[in-house]
Design a protein around this nucleic acid. Structure first.
Length: 420
DNA sequence: TCTGGGGTCCTAGGACCC
DNA sequence: TCTGGGGTCCTAGGACCC
């Protein structure tokens, strides 16, 4: 059996943990740039606040019901996530951390009738150790475990655990899951399935396998077998090797000045480089892009991206920024209002296994020493204490984060103080 | 009448996830 | 004023090879 442990309203629960006064109160957490709702407490959901709702459209609703609003604070969520995963790792020797708020546990070695009780123990320990509420779904396949998890959240949140361990329960779960709620079925496949008369997961599981293979590709075919309780999606304990590293952001406001857009790109590129170094990776190619605000349909639109092959794998900020700048010169067009740019590192290799190029002119050893200094200084004095000229000092491209909570658990100046 | 065919690699685009 | 960001996987089609 496979268990899926999923934190309830994770980001909202994290914020609430440090403001116990918000227990049973409506909370929402906003995306980058305070753009739209990406997490909400049950109380906020009950008010009719939709996932993904643009915050400027629901402002009056938020005020009217005195909803607490937070900018997203990934440092805080990441740290609490680590603590949840650490607790989980004590209850299984096969743990797959699937996302910031979810993990699969392999419970194959357990006797069936012990599994549910065990899951309750896990749930209680996470509450005790970290203070985050979780739900647990258990089933013979990952897809069904996801389904079980969703059902317990939806139909009996207090219970916290649901186990699909009989044919009857499996049929019940499939019949009570709409096609668009199946893991692996997104908006396009929902349209396709609905058009063809499928309503529930049960209907899908009764379809001819060839039809699924033909219309939903091999990914759909795996999902189809998983619905029948045949586990096809492998368990992956080790975090998979990264294949790309991307930093792309919308600006706090639209920018038309070439230097300002370039400055934003330089900063995002520097972030990519720092990320590569922190994971001991280097890149052989970067892809950069610039784009206008697609939501402003009355303004002229422009999007262009460019892939740049590097002479040799690197993770040094100055070289990547220089390459990005050259590329930027060819894709930038004046006269547009830009609102987003980004840099993606592709073709990653381990930093220690760089294939050196005989005709290379870069001073690699010197660069890498320089980067070590940059990383050390920035670790001690803040992210951008030491930077390259092209990164500039402008702030107009920066994110809007008006409602940011403190990093209670990761920054010593921001720990919680209690007045007694 | 009949204009090769099979394999591999790469890329863009489309689907999905949280 | 204002609509997220960071990923993975699969497929189709073109280029190229022999």
């Amino acid at each position: 059996m496979i268990a899926l442990v999923d934190c309830n309203n994770f980001y909202a629960s994290c914020e609430r943990l440090f403001q116990p006064g918000l227990q049973n109160k409506p909370i929402v957490v906003l995306s980058n740039n305070d753009g739209c709702v990406i997490a909400r407490s049950d109380e906020a959901r009950a008010l009719g606040i939709e996932m993904g709702a643009p915050s400027f459209l629901i402002e009056s609703l938020l005020q009217q019901h005195n909803v607490s609003v937070f900018s997203s604070n990934y440092t805080l969520y990441g740290d609490l996530s680590d603590r949840v995963m650490t607790t989980l790792s004590q209850y299984t020797d096969r743990l797959e951390v699937y996302s910031i708020d979810e993990a699969f546990l392999d419970l194959t070695s357990f006797r069936h009738h012990y599994v549910t009780g065990y899951a309750h123990t896990i749930r209680n320990m996470i509450m005790q150790n970290v203070g985050i509420p979780v739900s647990i779904g258990i089933a013979p396949s990952k897809t069904l475990a996801k389904m079980a998890n969703r059902l317990v959240k939806k139909r009996n949140k207090q219970a916290g655990v649901y186990c699909i361990d009989t044919e009857e329960k499996m049929q019940f779960a499939l019949q009570n899951t709409a096609v668009n709620d199946i893991w692996g079925i997104g908006s396009q496949y929902t349209k396709l399935l609905t058009r063809n008369g499928f309503v529930t997961a049960w209907d899908v599981s009764r379809a001819p396998e060839e039809w699924i293979r033909k219309n939903l590709s091999v990914v759909g075919q795996r999902m189809y077998n998983e619905l029948k309780g045949i586990s096809c999606i492998p368990f992956e304990e080790m975090p998979a090797k990264k294949k790309m590293v991307c930093v792309a952001r919308g600006f706090g406001k639209v920018l038309s000045d070439k230097n300002e857009v370039m400055e934003a790109l330089a900063n995002f590129t520097a972030m990519v480089a720092a990320k590569l170094r922190s994971e001991q990776l280097a890149t052989n190619a970067i892809q950069i892009f610039v784009q206008t605000n697609a939501h402003r349909s009355n303004e002229p639109q422009y999007f262009r991206s460019l892939t740049i092959q590097l002479p040799e794998a690197t993770n040094s900020t100055n070289e990547l920024i220089r390459q990005a700048r050259q590329g930027f010169e060819t894709i930038y067009r004046p006269g547009y209002n830009y609102n987003k740019t980004g840099c993606t590192a592709m073709e990653l290799v381990p930093a220690e296994k760089i294939q050196y190029n005989m005709f290379d002119t870069e001073n690699r050893a010197r660069n890498s020493q320089l980067m070590q200094v940059v990383d050390t200084v920035n670790r001690s004095f803040g992210k951008n204490a030491l930077r390259f000229a092209l990164q500039g000092f402008g702030t107009r491209w920066k994110l809007r984060q008006l409602k940011l909570s403190p990093c209670y658990t990761t920054r010593i100046e921001e720990v919680l103080t209690i007045n007694i």
